[in-house]
Write a protein that binds this DNA or RNA. Structure first.
Length: 287
DNA sequence: AAGAGGCCCTGATAGC
DNA sequence: TGCTATCAGGGCCTCT
């Protein structure tokens, strides 16, 4: 699923189309997402004008002109597609699957605007839409989340003291949204490669310098991914069997058995399951 | 309180 | 061809 960079790219692309637009009609085909859509979902959104689209961590936030909100999470497999009306179903694809056409199944939510509509597709249904009635309710939704890597609160003092007396490996902490929010399974491996730290390394044995390195590389890796339009992309075969051609920029993710990309390093990329998730690292240069 | 593990769900792929 | 097992970008919940 999208991690912070992919969600940000979706936000930017959506913003170009939906700011100051009014929702005309909402159609729900399957209410059973991660959280069941309320019965008034369609009516609540109808005639709402979108004043802004924001993002925190992996959450998208639709801001309505009446100061209410809609929180969107894409889960593992959620994608958003824009379909222009009156132009022979031309699709602007905001998913991270290189599919030229709208998927046939799992198009759960359709939000109609005057000249186009957006479709929420999600095979696994781990994603969700939530209506938020007030600014304080919105704030409460994010209370339990740690700072984003870009936030100045994510500094070495915070990280170093957070790790004090903790007995868990660093990979798990990068995935722990209470500690830092926005990093997912792909970028966790990439960040640790950049920092030359083995994912199994226990955090209580990390030096301040290593903590700084993690902070720096978290920002670097995520920003780089945003600038590349989201790099965490799986190949996807469309209905005609054509393979997606998005480039991968991964240094370690899904590179098990291949040579380390670091100059002069003779290491080989290993794969290890850490807290139920695949983790990739170089056998030599990550210590 | 911290940490480990189960669970939600569908689809692609590998192996027999 | 068809079966089964495993894995997939997340995060909530429960148990110890």
């Amino acid at each position: 699923m999208p991690e912070l960079p992919e969600v940000e790219v979706v936000r930017q692309s959506l913003a170009k189309r939906i700011i100051n637009k009014k929702i005309r009609k909402v159609i729900v085909r399957n209410r059973n997402l991660r959280f069941k859509l309320p019965h008034n979902f369609e009516n609540y959104l109808k005639n709402k004008k979108i004043s802004k689209i924001g993002r925190f961590s992996k959450y998208l936030i639709l801001y309505f002109s009446d100061n209410s909100y809609c929180l969107i999470h894409l889960g593992m497999s959620g994608t958003i597609h824009i379909i222009n009306k009156n132009k022979k179903n031309k699709i602007t694809n905001l998913s991270f699957y290189n599919s030229p056409t709208l998927p046939k199944k799992h198009n759960h939510i359709e939000i109609n605007f005057e000249e186009f509509k957006i479709i929420y597709n999600d095979p696994r249904r781990f994603g969700f839409f939530q209506l938020i009635k007030s600014t304080s309710d919105l704030r409460n939704k994010f209370l339990h989340l740690g700072p984003e890597p870009f936030n100045k609160k994510f500094n070495s003092k915070y990280v170093y003291s957070y790790f004090y007396n903790k007995k868990k490996n660093i990979k798990s902490f990068l995935l722990d949204q209470n500690f830092v929010s926005g990093i997912g399974n792909i970028y966790a491996s990439e960040i640790l490669f950049m920092s030359k730290i083995k994912p199994t390394k226990n955090v209580n044995s990390l030096s301040k310098i290593k903590c700084r390195s993690i902070i720096l590389n978290s920002k670097k890796v995520l920003l780089n991914a945003i600038n590349k339009g989201g790099s965490s992309i799986r190949n996807f075969k469309d209905a005609k069997g054509k393979i997606g051609n998005f480039q991968k920029n991964f240094k370690v993710y899904q590179r098990e058995g291949l040579n380390c990309k670091r100059v002069h390093c003779k290491g080989v990329i290993k794969k290890k399951i850490i807290s139920k998730r695949s983790t990739f690292y170089c056998s030599l240069c990550q210590k």
